[in-house]
Amino acid sequence: MSANLIPILWEATLQTLYMVAMSTLLGTLIGGPLGVFLATSRRGELLSAPWLNTVLGLVVNAARSTPFIILVVAIIPFTRMIAGTSIGTTAAIVPLTIAAAPFIARLIETAIREVDAGLIEAARAMGATPGQIVRKVLIPEAMPGIILGLTLAVVSLIGYSAMVGAVGGEGLGDLGIRYGYQRFMPEVMLAVVVILIVLVQLVQSCGEWIASRFDKRAPRNRGQ
């Protein structure tokens, strides 16, 4: 591989990291509260609002069942409205966020639903408000599951970010297609794949490590 490709690979890696980081952040800001609400608003639950729960559930399912590449193209006018342009790395953050938010919402909903109902009852018996139950019981208790869910979301977004090249987003995926496929440079394709494997591996390991730091459920031998 010629030396002048290395800056290109490096730049593409940074672009991918930028897109994934921003869309994870924004997706969590939208999907986090949405997930908490979905987990607590069925009939008879803490924030009981069955109609809104059903409607939001349908919206989330619709967003999740749309293939990502179609989503990217379908929301181009919306992307232009938000980002000022529909082309480029920053613009790609819009569809990535819109794909990430419902996914993260479902992952966080699942993590929160894993929390033992007995803990909610105990907190209610203490006179906790629904807000206190969410902040002091549900989120801290679900934290290991939430971290693992976000890890999964980041890994999926690394994959999605490779597709935004189709609408002028840059990054590793775009580089792999343009150089590796269209210009017949298999070594670039290989480098891109290796970098992606390393990235995913790093994200997965970090996520698992952080989750285990939050997880106090397993007994540990600390000695006496």
Binding site: D116, G118, L119, E121, A122, A125, M126, G127, V137, P140, E141, M143, F214, K216, R217
Partner: peptide, 15 residues
Amino acid sequence: REVGMIFQHFNLLAS
């Protein structure tokens, strides 16, 4: 808050 409660399965926060 004037009524305490204890449970069969303790219901302690693992975190």
